[in-house]
Amino acid sequence: MKKFLSRICVSLMIMSIVGLNIHMPLAQASMVGTAQLMAQQSSEQGRENIVAFLDRAEVQQQLQEHGVALQDARDRVAGLSDAEVQMLSGKIDQLPAGGSAVGVLVGAAVFIFVVLLITDIVGLTDVFPFVHPVR
């Protein structure tokens, strides 16, 4: 519920900003940007910009919900391209995050330990540093 309310808040804020006609900095006024050139000057440019803008707010919020500090989340979203933001928007939960090794296996059942031990020995996986695959 709280999440839902905050989302409505963010959406309203964005709408008001869009309504007030405060533009995000686009390409220079009358220069054809390199990205634009590559996209063959799509006629949907304007709409895409607004969608990307909404996605940016969404991704920033998601990062914060996953424990990233406000300023860091802001910087991180600013460093992404529109396409990348679109790929992340609404999907941070499903995407794999590389964190690896230490500690991950602590909670694993003995069964999984044995399976991974065997697959390590056979050379299919590389979980335990002390196992060297037979070749």
Binding site: E84, L88, I92, A97, G98
Partner: peptide, 20 residues
């Protein structure tokens, strides 16, 4: 780390690795 790590996911995303 502040630009790559996501605490609740215990890891980093590929897209952010590419942006760094």
């Amino acid at each position: 780390s502040p630009g790559l790590f996501i605490p609740d996911k215990n890891g980093s995303l590929q897209i952010e690795m590419l942006a760094m």
